[in-house]
């Protein structure tokens, strides 16, 4: 396999097309996906709100849902954090960068991430079972418990992307490119 490589130091598999026969513009393998097939899988949500579904929720409804579906693993958010031993990360802190635990209030840069993650992955033991309204409500509860929105705020596809997260200003992109500098 490696013997044919001219320069072993640059192990970049170039496209096979370049080495021999002519490359077709299309190979013709695979088939067109239908809109229905796409919508079944397309559950992601971007920070600009793209992908958010219809529906809405609020923190009060969210609290009830949280206590029945989430607290068993993530805690009820009333107890003393320092002594709690939970099978899952704590989700509630305040908005100060220095406070602990690291959670939604002081570490999450985008509110849309909460919606996206809950809808795809939680509750851990029954992922994908929450309705869109339930996800909006639990997101509202978590944002309120982390002191980011008011209890009366309604979350929907319009309002959720507008929530400004306190941790956003802390995030920087990695700009390292190799070379001698240690950063």
């Amino acid at each position: 396999m490696l013997a044919t490589m001219v320069k072993v130091s640059a192990q970049q598999p170039r496209n096979v097309e370049k080495t021999g026969t002519k490359t077709p513009a299309k190979y013709g393998f695979g088939r067109t996906a239908t809109l229905k097939e796409i919508s079944l899988l397309d559950i992601d949500v971007r920070p600009d709100g793209k992908g958010l579904p219809a529906g809405q929720g609020d923190a009060l409804k969210g609290k009830a849902l949280y206590l029945s579906k989430c607290a068993v693993c993530h805690g009820n958010n009333n107890t003393d954090f320092s002594t709690a031993k939970l099978p899952a990360p704590m989700l509630v802190s305040d908005t100060s960068a220095k406070s602990r635990p690291k959670a939604i209030g002081n570490y999450w840069p985008y509110a849309t991430t909460i919606f996206d993650y809950l809808r795809r992955a939680m509750p851990y033991n029954a992922p994908g079972t929450l309705t869109n309204d339930e996800v909006y409500s639990i997101t509202a509860y978590l944002l309120h418990a982390n002191k980011i929105i008011k209890q009366s705020d309604i979350l929907n596809a319009e309002t959720l992307p507008k929530v400004v997260m306190p941790a956003k200003k802390l995030f920087i992109m990695d700009d390292r490119k190799g070379g001698p500098e240690v950063k």
Partner: peptide, 13 residues
């Protein structure tokens, strides 16, 4: 395929 990152939980939290 997109023109912006999604900021998923695994690349933020």
């Amino acid at each position: 395929i997109s023109d912006a990152p999604y900021m998923t939980r695994e690349e933020t939290s």
